[in-house]
Simulated assay, not measured.
Amino acid sequence: MHRLVRPKPLLLILSVIALIALVAAGQYLRLFERAWFNLHTLWQPVNGQSIALDQYQVAVEAQVIVGLDDDVSALTFDPVRKSLFTVTNKNSELIELSLDGQIVRRVSLVGFGDPEAVEFITTDTYVITDERQQRLIKVHLGSNTTFLDAADAEQMTLGVHMSGNKGFEGLAYDSVGKRLFVAKERDPMLIYEVHGFPHYNPEKSYAVHVVNNPKRDAGMFVTDLSSLQYDERSGHLLALSDESRLILELDVDGRPLSTLSLSKGRQGLQKTVPQAEGIAMDDDGTMYLVSEPNLFYVFKKPVQN
């Protein structure tokens, strides 16, 4: 009579460890929340106020920015110049790009430390971040400007949750509410709202107020933040995550509404976007994206008949 074979204790232990590891990985990558969101959107009616990122398709994929060898970081649309701006953080420069990804001009950055993000504020006025020192630096860019020196610029340091190079990775500006959104990459991943900087009215007192929204931040099912974009028309905020290969649309209350995947086979992509670093949206809703070291993408929503 054969005795029943019992599973070896070591096999059981290894199975339990593997299961715990899978659950931990899923929790870290926010896979459960992301899966629930995707499932929820299947039967939920489309929000009429949503930008509907899932409808966007790639129009320009992985185009090399000719003449640029350094890593690009961040992206912003200038509605006055009708062009894009990005920064490089090794040989620090502010780079102006045409809407088809060609270099228009290069401006040297002096004393900016580790520039990681740039955001258009108003005509000729931008804010650039120094990631490591958590500085926000307001600059004025004239038509003949060839270099910008941080020592000559209005600036402020937040100095919150200091953690090496996991600092300010993204900026977005609400010109109506006069809010500057500042994304901290991770450890912890946060979005601050800065009121009063940059100072836009010299005749009024200068007071800076910084707030954040823990409920909104906890609801973002991504593991890091690389860039932000504020959509003036809807009042919604777009958050780019390189690690999660996702762009997330948040409504005015911080609730996720739609997503755009940066993985191969999604949105018409032939290959996964390797290291997404910056997003910007123009007046027509066309979305632009840059990826390290020097790749350029364009996403457009098909015209509805």
Rank of each mutant, 00 (worst) to 15 (best):
Trp36Glu: 15
Gln27His: 15
Arg30Trp: 02
Phe147Pro: 00
Ala150Tyr: 05
Gln270Tyr: 11
Ser258Asn: 11
Leu99Gly: 13
Lys271Thr: 14
Leu136Ala: 15
Leu238Ile: 07
Glu169Asn: 06
Ser163Val: 05
His2Tyr: 08
Val107Trp: 07
Ile103Lys: 00
Asp71Ala: 01
Asp100Tyr: 01
Phe37Thr: 06
Leu84Gly: 06
Pro198Phe: 10
Val182Cys: 01
Ser263Gln: 15
Val194Lys: 05
Pro115Ala: 14
Asn89Gly: 01
Asp174Met: 05
Ser83Met: 00
Pro214Ser: 07
Arg216Phe: 05
Thr125Lys: 15
Phe112Met: 14
Lys8Phe: 05
Asp149Ala: 08
Thr41Gly: 03
Arg105Gln: 04
Pro188Glu: 02
Pro274Asp: 10
Ala218Glu: 13
Tyr173Asp: 11
Ser92Gln: 08
Val176Thr: 12
Glu203Cys: 00
Leu19Thr: 13
Phe296Cys: 00
Gly254Leu: 05
Gly113Asp: 05
Leu237Asn: 08
Leu29Ala: 14
Phe32Trp: 09
Asp54Thr: 10
Leu228Met: 13
Thr157Met: 04
Gln55Glu: 14
Leu260Phe: 08
Val5Asp: 05
Glu61Gly: 10
Gly111Lys: 01
Ala280Glu: 11
Asp231Gly: 11
Asn294Ile: 01
Val194Phe: 10
Ile279Leu: 15
Thr272Leu: 09
Leu4Ala: 09
Pro293Arg: 03
Thr123Trp: 02
Leu158Lys: 02
Gly26Ser: 13
Ser291Asn: 04
Val72Gln: 04
Val211Gly: 14
Lys204Ile: 10
Leu19His: 03
Ala74Ile: 00
Pro214Gln: 03
Pro7Ile: 04
Gly177Thr: 06
Lys138Ser: 13
Leu12His: 07
Leu14Cys: 09
Phe197Tyr: 09
Leu10His: 06
Pro214Glu: 03
Asp282Met: 10
Val16Leu: 15
Arg34Glu: 15
Tyr126Asp: 09
Ala25Pro: 04
Val16Arg: 09
Ile191Glu: 10
Thr88Asn: 00
Val252Tyr: 09
Glu93Met: 00
Asp282Gln: 10
Gly268Glu: 13
Gly48Glu: 08
Leu260Pro: 06
Asn294Tyr: 00
Leu42Asp: 10
Ser263Leu: 15
Leu31Thr: 10
Lys264Tyr: 08
Gln57Asn: 12
Asp130Val: 04
Val104Ile: 12
Glu131Cys: 05
Met156Leu: 15
Ala239Val: 14
Tyr297Phe: 08
Lys178Tyr: 02
Gly254Ser: 05
Glu61Lys: 07
Val160Cys: 02
Ala150Cys: 06
Asp251Phe: 01
Thr86Ile: 04
